[in-house]
């Protein structure tokens, strides 16, 4: 492993402590729909890593399947990335992390990827207290398969018209709190001012950190009568070329003060009531956080910000009692118990 600095860039370009420019944290060009909330999250990740002076190659990006899970190609191009299978990112990160505890793990997932097919793996990675950032890019729909309801759907249901989602939603934040996560935050892709610090906090947190980031899908949503509803698209679908339905959309951005609320108009015209935590909100009290979330839910508000943090962290490696060095760095000499030990094992079977 090496921390050698990359080739010298133009002196005028700003660099971080390690001598990297922002560019060094970028990835290839996004192929997501213009205005997709997920791209804003990638941008926030880039900024957070740059500002944290993380050596890009010391980050491992791992995702499941979905539009959201595609995004690791679009940030940190000098890091290894792994776009795995649908809903199983947590297990891949778990294995990777056991192998090498020294890298920084960024897991990227969608609401379908996490709250449906991957719900089991999500619960268990929280329980395992794996040291990672788990980023859910939550748009309430299955983007990549063209807009079916997801299990987190209807975060904006209070103000939405159309047929209500008949199923109760899964709130990943509440789940994570219940399962013992030590860093729990909700962000909104369009609120960079809030999101970047949340990501920086999560990456610096020495245990499991969840960010449930609301991230509007510009192309699909599920309101009857909406030209972007799943039903509508299905009926009017020209197979394969979904791009036909993608109007040029501007990324939604917000900027508002702590302790206040803001209503965000979504691409389909629906409203989202975000509520930023009060400045005196106590993020160290898990019980209060759970109650606060329930209150917000009753009032149709979506609390955003740093909801809970416990700096007193046990990481999975503490539970496993592994050695200081990454397991992947151990030489065969250290791992081989030797011929004498084998002979005495043979003897125990005589």
């Amino acid at each position: 492993m090496s921390y050698a600095k990359p080739k010298v860039a133009h002196p005028a370009i700003a660099k971080n402590e390690l001598g990297y420019t922002r560019r060094d944290y970028e990835g290839s060009i996004s192929t997501l729909c213009a205005g997709c909330g997920h791209d804003s999250i990638s941008a926030a990740l880039i900024q957070a890593c740059y500002e944290l002076d993380l050596p890009p190659h010391q980050v491992a990006k791992i995702s499941g399947i979905g539009c959201s899970s595609k995004t690791p190609t679009y940030f940190l191009g000098a890091s290894h990335g792994f776009n795995s299978v649908h809903g199983r990112m947590p297990s891949v990160v778990t294995g990777a992390n056991i192998a090498n505890k020294d890298l920084v793990y960024v897991g990227v997932s969608g609401d379908g990827d996490t709250a449906s097919i991957g719900f089991g793996q999500f619960s268990h990675i929280v329980r395992r207290r794996l040291n990672m950032l788990y980023m859910v890019e939550n748009n309430g729909v299955y983007g990549l398969t063209k807009g079916q309801f997801s299990a987190t759907a209807d975060f904006g249901s209070a103000s939405k018209g159309g047929v209500p989602n008949p199923y109760d939603q899964i709130d990943l934040i509440q789940m994570a709190l219940q399962l013992g996560a030590t860093y729990v935050a909700r962000g909104f892709s369009g609120d960079k001012k809030q999101l970047v610090p949340l990501i920086k906090g999560a990456l610096s947190h020495p245990g499991f950190a969840l960010i449930d980031c609301i991230s509007p899908c510009v192309t699909f949503n599920n309101h009857e009568g909406s030209t972007r509803s799943y039903e509508y698209v299905r009926e009017h679908d020209v197979p394969v070329v979904t791009a036909d339905y993608v109007p040029y959309a501007k990324t939604i951005k917000v900027d508002y003060e702590p302790g206040t609320g803001t209503s965000v108009k979504m691409h389909d015209g629906s409203m989202l009531n975000l509520h930023k935590l009060e400045e005196d909100y106590d993020p160290y009290d898990r019980k209060k956080a759970i109650n606060y979330l329930l209150d917000c839910q009753e009032q149709g508000k979506i609390a955003t910000g740093m909801l809970y943090v416990n700096p007193d962290v046990t990481d999975f490696h503490d539970i496993l009692e592994t050695v200081e060095e990454p397991l992947s760095s151990l030489s065969y000499d250290r791992l081989n118990p030797g011929a004498d030990a084998l002979e005495s094992i043979n003897a125990s079977f005589r």
């Binding site: 990160v93 294995g95 056991i98 009692e321 200081e324």
Partner: peptide, 22 residues
């Protein structure tokens, strides 16, 4: 401390996922 790590997974999908990640 241990020069190995064993995780009892939540199912076989997770078990093989861990093996692939590691």
């Amino acid at each position: 401390r241990k020069l190995f790590g064993i995780a009892q997974a939540e199912d076989e999908l997770a078990a093989i996922g861990m093996v692939i990640g590691a």
